[in-house]
Amino acid sequence: MPLVADGKAKAVAHGELRAIGFWMIVRGATPVRPVRVFVSYEALAQLDPYDIRDLASAFEHFERFRARIEAAASDKFDRDGLDAEKYEGMPTIRLTTSDPV
Rank of each mutant, 00 (worst) to 15 (best):
E88Q: 14
A5N: 13
G81E: 04
R79N: 08
M90S: 08
G81W: 02
D78I: 01
T30L: 13
K76Q: 07
L82Y: 03
T92M: 14
E42Y: 07
I25S: 09
D99L: 00
E85L: 13
R68F: 07
R94Q: 12
D51L: 09
P2I: 08
A13I: 07
R94W: 11
R18W: 02
L17W: 12
M1W: 05
A84Y: 11
M1V: 08
L17K: 15
P31F: 12
S40I: 09
G15D: 15
M24H: 00
E63S: 06
I52A: 00
T96L: 01
L44V: 03
V4C: 06
A43W: 01
D80G: 01
K86S: 10
Q46L: 15
A19D: 02
F62A: 02
T30W: 13
A84K: 14
G28L: 04
G28C: 02
F59N: 04
T30R: 13
D54S: 07
D6I: 08
P100F: 01
A11P: 10
E42C: 05
Y50Q: 11
F59K: 04
K8P: 03
D48M: 02
L44G: 01
E85F: 05
L17A: 14
Y41L: 10
D54C: 06
A72R: 03
R36M: 14
K10W: 10
D75G: 07
V12C: 07
Y41T: 05
D6G: 07
R27W: 12
S40G: 06
A58N: 03
A58K: 08
R18E: 15
M24A: 00
E70S: 05
L44W: 02
W23G: 06
E16W: 04
F65L: 13
T96E: 02
H61R: 08
V101I: 13
A84V: 09
K76E: 06
K86T: 11
R53P: 02
D83P: 01
P2M: 10
V39M: 01
G28A: 05
R79S: 12
P91N: 06
F22L: 05
Y87M: 09
I20C: 00
L55D: 10
A19G: 04
R18L: 07
K8R: 14
V101D: 10
